Amino acid sequence: MSVAGQSSSVTRGCDCLAHRFGNAADNGSRQPRYPTDVTDAEWAVLRPLLPVPGWMRGRGGRPEAYCHRAILDAIRYLVDNGIKWRAMPADFPPWDRVYAFFRRWRDHGLVTEFHDRLRGRLREREGRDTEPTAGVIDSQSVKADAVVGSDSRGFDGGKLINGRKRHLVVDTLGLLLGVMVTAADIGDRTAAKVLLGQVADAHHQLELVWADGGYTGSLVEHCLATLALVLSIVKRSDNQKGFVVLPKRWIVERTNAWLMRTRRLARDYECRTTSAEAMVYWSMTMVMTRRLARTRPQLA
């Protein structure tokens, strides 16, 4: 019997594709016990938005042997608690199977596809168009773990941080439109030139992006001439002292705060920058599914 606000059992009757068409029923079930487990309300939202596995689309591969809901529970647990892959609790599927799922979704862009579907659904729920017309860009430097090699880490002299830098573009709700992870010594304008190009290609209705003073210079002209994108610089007044909330820029700062609440993102532990970017997407999927589950209309 499920309790409101808590997840129900992942059972042999689960309606995930691995149970319905794969071999997941052969591996039994697990009883949910962690705050990060997908609730029934969340599952009702995200289940129709999950990408269809390649083995169901004639692309070969063995039908999956572990429940998709249990796999999602495992990845959410890892991202939120910051554990090592090999430290995955025993009640989840084997850690190497969970990592194989994570790697497949990372390499084939499935985590981005899933994330974007959730973002579109949440924007519709908030009364917005699916595609945004305005966004905000910023970067955040974080310390890197010892496993991060020298080829993808650097020293941010402004923040005095040895590690990596996350470059984010978000919409006016703070939802992620694009992320790029670089060494911390890469300049904001250098990374933004690439990231804004990717975001503009993916979101054709985007017309305006707000940024701080670190993005001034030739980038403004480049965005207008090449991307047909207005880069508006929100500057801090020279007369202002102490902490001041600046218009529009606070939106992306709030998104950075959301990400830092997941322990896997409090420091960069990923050997590859693509894995670091995937972790950001997984963290945002948790934010969005929880919000969608709370605002889901009640059925009569």
Rank of each mutant, 00 (worst) to 15 (best):
V220N: 13
Y215T: 00
G217I: 00
R189W: 07
G187N: 07
L219V: 05
V199W: 05
E207F: 08
A191I: 09
L195W: 06
Y215V: 00
E207R: 15
G217N: 11
D188A: 07
Q205S: 15
V209Y: 05
Q205W: 07
A202I: 09
G213T: 05
V194P: 08
V209T: 03
A191F: 08
T190C: 04
V199F: 02
V209Q: 01
R189S: 10
G187C: 05
D188Q: 04
V220D: 11
L195H: 08
D201Y: 11
A211L: 05
G187S: 13
T216L: 11
D201G: 15
E221S: 15
V194Y: 12
G214Q: 10
W210L: 02
A191C: 05
E207G: 13
G197F: 03
Y215L: 06
D188W: 03
G217Y: 08
A211T: 01
H203M: 02
L219H: 08
A211D: 03
A200P: 01
S218E: 14
G197Y: 08
A191V: 08
A200L: 03
G197I: 02
H204D: 12
E207D: 14
T190P: 02
G214Y: 08
H204G: 14
L219S: 12
S218Q: 15
A191M: 11
G217R: 11
Q198K: 13
